[in-house]
């Protein structure tokens, strides 16, 4: 069958008509397959949800027990059949529990990558290339300008700054799911063994990661009792990026603003946000990784979703690979 008879973009998200399910729908639907726990992909209010156990746990932590009607945990590599459509989940390397979803019927095979990355990440399983007819790729960093540097060199910048400015609080903005835990794990790998302080919004997810066997070292809440006079000088504090513009940040002495994100590759972006120390640490592929992945997967057609579709489509065109943008709406291509 033709690929766009198997899967096509509908107002609520990517829809499989034969199987009667959506993948990462942006509005409540009867049956949803979810790639990973980020809130623009995993929303509350669906009837039935199929996802990895970790993704279901993360949704429960974020939205509470009633986040959906019924849920079904799908093991990686296991084949399940939904109304005659074969569905399999494969690791995507994006955050803990993240998966690509492979959909096959009547001899046509499509892989929805969700968000993915190719770098080593101590907090999740690595991406696994799955040969297919159509590969649906994200394009968050789909421009030739994005070449993410080595994580270790970026963490080294933070450690150098801690030595150079020991009187300042090093406040790192990092998204609560995935990025924050990865930054902590990377710091630990570099031998940083002092306590790391976190914003309250990160607590439950950090606890969950630890419960899953990921070593984050000693973590303390960045809160003060009424009579406490601690000033956090020389410490590392991690919180959601928005918290730094907030009154919350006032408890820190002379804070040095840091942001861990793939966007930090662009100086003007860093400057605009008032970031003094940008750390280019991304949970998405950079340009060489996107193009390398397409070559490796070797699909006969590429569909490009959220991000900078036009550049990746252009690249495919130059490489002689059929490609088109999907124009899915509702995904946050800035949140990273």
């Amino acid at each position: 069958m033709k690929p766009d008879a198997l899967l096509y973009p509908a107002p609520k998200g990517l829809y499989c008509e034969i199987g009667d399910f959506y993948i990462d729908p942006v509005q409540p639907v009867d049956r949803a397959l979810i790639t990973h726990g980020h809130s623009d992909h995993a929303r509350a209010g669906h009837g039935q949800v199929l996802a990895t156990r970790e993704t279901l746990d993360i949704m429960r932590i974020r939205y509470g027990d009633g986040f959906c009607g019924t849920s079904q945990a799908v093991a990686l590599g296991q084949t399940i059949v939904v109304n005659g459509v074969e569905v399999r989940f494969h690791p995507a390397g994006h955050v803990l529990g993240s998966a690509q979803i492979s959909v096959a019927a009547k001899g046509t095979h499509i892989v929805v990558s969700g968000d993915y990355k190719r770098r080593r990440d101590p907090t999740c399983l690595p991406f696994e290339p799955v040969p297919c007819d159509v590969f649906i790729t994200e394009a968050t960093f789909g421009l030739p300008v994005f070449h993410h540097p080595d994580d270790r060199a970026e963490m080294h910048k933070l450690l150098t700054s801690l030595k150079q400015f020991p009187e300042r609080t090093h406040v790192v903005g990092a998204y609560a799911l995935g990025k924050a835990q990865r930054v902590i794990a990377l710091l630990r790998e570099q031998g940083y063994d002092r306590p790391i302080y976190i914003h309250g919004a990160l607590q439950k997810l950090c606890d969950y990661y630890r419960g899953e066997g990921i070593d984050l070292g000693e973590i303390r809440p960045a809160t003060l009792a009424a009579d406490e006079k601690q000033d956090f000088a020389g410490t590392v504090v991690i919180g959601p990026p928005a918290a730094f513009a907030d009154r919350w940040a006032r408890r820190f002495v002379d804070p040095l603003a840091i942001f861990a994100s793939g966007w930090m590759m662009i100086r003007q972006r860093a400057k605009q946000r008032g970031v003094e120390l940008p750390l280019v640490i991304s949970d998405h592929c950079d340009w060489p990784e996107l193009t390398q992945t397409i070559r490796e997967v070797g699909p006969s057609e590429v569909w490009v979703t959220h991000g900078r579709e036009e550049a990746l489509v252009r690249w495919c065109e130059l490489e002689g690979i059929a490609a088109r943008p999907l124009h899915l709406v509702g995904y946050d291509d800035e949140g990273e």
């Binding site: 030739p144 300008v145 590759m265 662009i266 100086r267 003007q268 900078r308 550049a311 252009r314 690249w315």
Partner: peptide
Amino acid sequence: RMDEVLFRYSYDYVGDLAETVSLV
């Protein structure tokens, strides 16, 4: 050594020539 269309997308996004070239 670079496709002009891809360069234009990149330059439009970054806005500074030296920075664009250093990145791509």
